[in-house]
Amino acid sequence: MAAAPAQYSRGRSTVAAFRLSVLQFLADPQWLVPSMIAPVIFALVSFELFRVAGPYFLTYAILGAGMMSMWGQTLYGSGWATGQDREFGTLEPTIQAPTPYLYVVLGRVLWNVLSGLIGGLIVYLVILVVAGGPPTVTDPLGFALLFVFIMVTLASVGVVFAAFYVYTRYAGFIQNIGEFAFYIGTGCMFPVVLLPFFTNPISLLFPPTWGLDALRYLSIPGYRGFEWGFWGDLLGAVATTTAYLGFAGMVFYRVERHVLEEGNLSEY
């Protein structure tokens, strides 16, 4: 039986993790709630909430509801998938496989990005129906591109969260506590500049804060967000996302080493 060992491929492992995520999603009806039903509810709530926000209220509504639904799918889902690995007992065989676990996480994050975008699309369609027409977006192409990039910023935080799930079985507890603070603090629902000033430096530690502010600058004429404007936001988003992804790679290496020292991979 023994032969020259097969060479794993990081790309193939990422695709395999993506594929397994899709299969698990399709096999589990509970996912319909956050991915299909929640965006509809968010869209309706957001539409009512921003009715008085002026001529661009539809854009506010779409951004608010879209980000609410995508937050859960992209960021929360990425970490939670690793928590599931702990629960299923699949974390040990996956870590024991030759592929670095980071590439498995990346596959899952890709799926979560895609499902988050589907959530965003549902929000758009619902608001289109209830408003009786499309919102006014000054730069549709730029909006779409930036929208996808914001998914990447969310995913970069998700990868770091996933590392915490590898590190400890209590990561879910910590993530649940931080969920609403993160969601408000990064400006998912409304601009961060509306929050007390002392919260801003904390918000700026997270890539989605920069990305979302940039998106509002791009799509809402007269928007007053951070004083450095659209390009400053964009630069900040790219820099913090890069930092998070680099940090995630480093954290994964250290976390893997730590759990091998602690021997707690099978705990859940």
Binding site: A6, E92, A97
Partner: peptide, 15 residues
């Protein structure tokens, strides 16, 4: 790792 197999068994460890 590519040269070794591990079977911890039991109800867990599978999707």
């Amino acid at each position: 790792r590519p040269r070794m197999g591990l079977v911890l068994g039991g109800e867990r460890g599978l999707y």
